[in-house]
Design a protein around this nucleic acid. Sequence first.
RNA 1: GACCCUAGUCAUA
Length: 334
Amino acid sequence: NCKMQVISFGKAGRVDRAWKVFRKMQQQGWDPDNITLTSLINAFCKARRTDDALKFFEEMEGKGYHFSAPTYNALILGLGNEKRLDQACSIFESMYKRGCIPGVDSFNSLLTALKQNGKATDAVKFFERMRKEGLSPNLYTYNILIEVLGKAGFEEELNEVRENMLRDGYNGSLITYNIVINGLCKTERIDDALNLLQEMRLKGYSPDCHTHSSLIWGLCRANRIDDACKLFYEVATAGEVPNVVVYSSLLNALSKAGKFDEAEKLFEQMVTKGFTLDVVAFNTMIGCLGKGGKIDKAYKLFQVMQEKGCEPDKVTYTSLVVSLNKVGRVTEAC
RNA sequence: GACCCUAGUCAUA
């Protein structure tokens, strides 16, 4: 029925469709429940349309609806994602006054917002505060903290958090490994990351696409392009199916290393295998072609992506303009 | 049936 449609359109990122269905349903005198409303609010937030979400939230609150934690969490995350940390904090603090006392999930949402804005110190403060409020951090909490502290290079705090985590009985998960591996890759410690890859295997975890794309990125950054290719083919032959992100990571690595022909071959392979290419995959290949001097081919791919229903974004245009300028075709760029 | 944790692309990256 209509409610299911709102939820599934929302989940699929088709916010406008969800919104239309919702309005129609409302006009027919339907009284939506919290779950439907939150699905919509969440869909707006995920589409980086948090202002629409807030407007809708306030409108519904004015009509007497009162919301529960998931609604606030969605808003906190949306605001954090749009770098509107102050507002994210305000919403969080307002929960107390609105009679919805933040639980672990809401603290986790706020910690995620802090993490996305690199606020490691504040994250630690809120972590302490949640304990003071009688809440027990869960694995999500620890994973978020590990990421933000790792990226900020807060080594002592990291160790403290790790101890807390173990004391609370959490040994980490595949996602924990992925977070740490990615952090090591991003901070130029690829060998430590590769050691962790071995360790996680020994512990019985199966590295997944997140693990592999992080490592390929790290190897590329360390100028170890051959190792990146090796890793890619190893996992492919080990029966693990690389997804479009893993392919794009290697594509990017090849492009950065100036291996343009191999990059084109890999891209062809992606097409042949029937992957649904997303905007990042197209952007990577367009950038690669431009870098390799094949401007016309890059432009052609720009047209192909649109034919395939993939909307170019800011990065697409910047790449094309930069490539055109490099060969002096400034007018075309305009 | 709604909410909380991880990966890839541009402007000498």
